[in-house]
Write a protein that binds this DNA or RNA. Structure first.
Length: 444
RNA sequence: GGAGAGGUGGCAGAGUGGUUGAAUGCGCCGGUUUCGAAAACCGGUCUGCCCGAAAGGGUAGCGGGAGUUCGAAUCUCCCCCUCUCCGCCA
């Protein structure tokens, strides 16, 4: 959520921001409704002040008939108060949903662009492998080795579903564990187990709703209050970021000394992938259910510090890929591709031989990581605030990034580590998590 | 699922219709004292929104919502949550 006060003072900034992101919003409408709300509120407060003053005096009046007269006089105010209050409330309930739709303006260092085609490659690491045989896709490899089963997945769970079997499942767990261990034991993150079935507030608070509502699976039937409805999260970012969520009138429980909060969690992620019909339908690339090791940092309200963490968190993800010796490139996403929530976003794309297009030697990189810098956007919705050393209360900044998501990461692993005979060499760093095995071979 | 108890400030815990944002204690911050510290003593210490350049003022908040009343933490109704006991399940 953007700052309403700032929106009032600098509407142009938000108009421009929405335009850069390609999001249609009516800023003037928000300002109009907000003004209605505030003028009604002022009226309400003026009448209420009068009423409170008069009521206070009534309590002191001893004479019965005089008291009755005063009560009769004040009674009239009661209706004026009620009327103004209702108008204020009505306008306020209109402001909120409008405000939730206004995107965070992209940061100044984000390149202007329409869509993913305008993203900028920042740098690369590793050399794509030159095969001296015709490389197979992870689908061919996995099915031949008996470690991936898409047929059973589709039969049991529908499209974009799969089974990982034997060494496939082992590899999946090994990579998640590698990532988690790096974050916990080397980078000092606090490991969490988070709810993946959450209430609407958590989805709204983290900025996935209302804009991305169609991407989430809804679970349960609404009762009269709607409270029985839950949502399956598409990332542990929801649980990790919302963890310190506060009520609006609550004093902050976080103090500056507690920051930064560094959380990591592995969770199962669920995505409807609405609007992607026909895109990446085969294989492990775009699936409805997967597991992801996610990192979240909640830091001080300081743009420079946010930027520093953004790069730092990105380096942790790179570290995982480097240890796996998988070639990748880092992308600075453009204004049209960073989504409603983000001030900036950088992706890591890992080289996947099967995605390489013979005509384009630059192709073959597929997104495996996404690092977001959100400044106050989520913190405002979640009321994530802290008391500064100076006593002032500020909103935190939040950031998040994939450490590794599997089975998508199995694509580059299987494809890059394949041998001419169809076997797959297990990356050295994963062997300790797989009983010391070195190769995945058919039937073994 | 059945029976009971309860949800008040950072924490503990008073308060059952009239200057109650709310006693008291603890904690925290500042000061006095001390060579320094502890103890003791004194003072301060919630948050949102609105108005204001600021100082400050107004308003709202005692689990949430609705109601009664001139006036509600206190009364009524609905909902949510927590705890204890019993049952059931893992």
């Amino acid at each position: 959520m953007v700052d309403l006060k700032d929106l009032r003072e600098n509407p142009e900034k938000y108009r421009r921001g929405a335009e850069l992101k390609g999001v249609k919003v009516d800023i003037d409408q928000v300002l109009r409704v907000d003004e209605q709300h505030r003028s009604a509120q002022r009226e309400f407060e003026r009448y209420r002040a009068e009423q409170n003053e008069a009521s206070k005096l009534i309590g002191k009046i001893k004479d019965a008939s005089e008291k009755q007269a005063s009560i009769a006089r004040v009674a009239d105010l009661k209706w004026k108060v009620k009327d103004a209050e209702e108008r204020a409330k009505a306008a306020e309930t209109l402001v909120q949903p409008l405000l939730l739709q206004i995107p965070q303006p992209p940061d100044a260092d984000v390149p202007v662009g329409k869509d993913a085609g305008d993203n900028v490659v920042l740098y690369r690491w590793g050399q794509p492998r030159k095969f001296d045989f015709a490389p197979r896709s992870h689908i061919e490899l996995g099915e031949a080795l008996g470690i991936l089963d898409f047929g059973a997945g589709v039969k049991i769970a529908g499209s974009r579903s799969y089974f990982l079997k034997g060494a496939g499942a082992e590899l999946h767990q090994a990579i998640l564990r590698l990532a988690l261990d790096l974050m916990v034991y080397e980078k000092g993150f606090t490991q969490m187990t988070v709810p993946v079935l959450v209430r609407e507030v958590a989805m709204k608070g983290t900025g996935f709703f209302p804009a991305g509502r169609e991407q989430a699976y809804r679970v349960g039937e609404p009762d009269e209050t709607g409270e029985d409805v839950r949502y399956l999260t598409g990332t542990a970012e929801v649980g990790l970021t919302a963890y310190q969520m506060h009520e609006e009138n609550e004093a902050p429980r976080i103090s500056e000394a507690d920051l930064p909060l560094k959380y990591v969690a592995v969770s199962t992620c669920f995505r409807r992938e609405a609007g992607t019909y026909g895109k990446d339908t085969a294989g492990l690339y775009r699936v409805h259910q997967f597991d992801k090791c996610e990192q979240v940092v909640v830091c001080r309200n300081d743009v420079e510090e946010s930027k520093k963490w953004h790069v730092e968190m990105l380096s942790y993800s790179e570290e995982v890929l480097k240890r796996l010796n998988l070639p990748f490139r880092v992308i600075q996403c453009c204004t049209g591709d960073i989504g409603v929530k983000n001030a900036s976003m950088m992706d890591i794309e890992t080289w996947m031989p099967s995605r390489q297009n013979a005509k384009d030697p630059e192709s073959g990189y597929g997104e495996t990581h996404s690092a977001s810098r959100l400044y106050e956007f989520q913190a405002r919705r979640l009321n994530l605030r802290y008391k500064g050393a100076d006593g002032k209360i500020r909103y935190c900044h939040t950031l998040n990034n994939t450490v590794v998501a599997s089975p998508r990461i199995l694509i580059p692993i299987l494809e890059n580590y394949q041998n001419a005979d169809g076997s797959v060499t297990i990356p050295e760093v994963l062997r300790p998590y797989m009983g010391g095995r070195e190769r995945i071979e058919k039937g073994k």
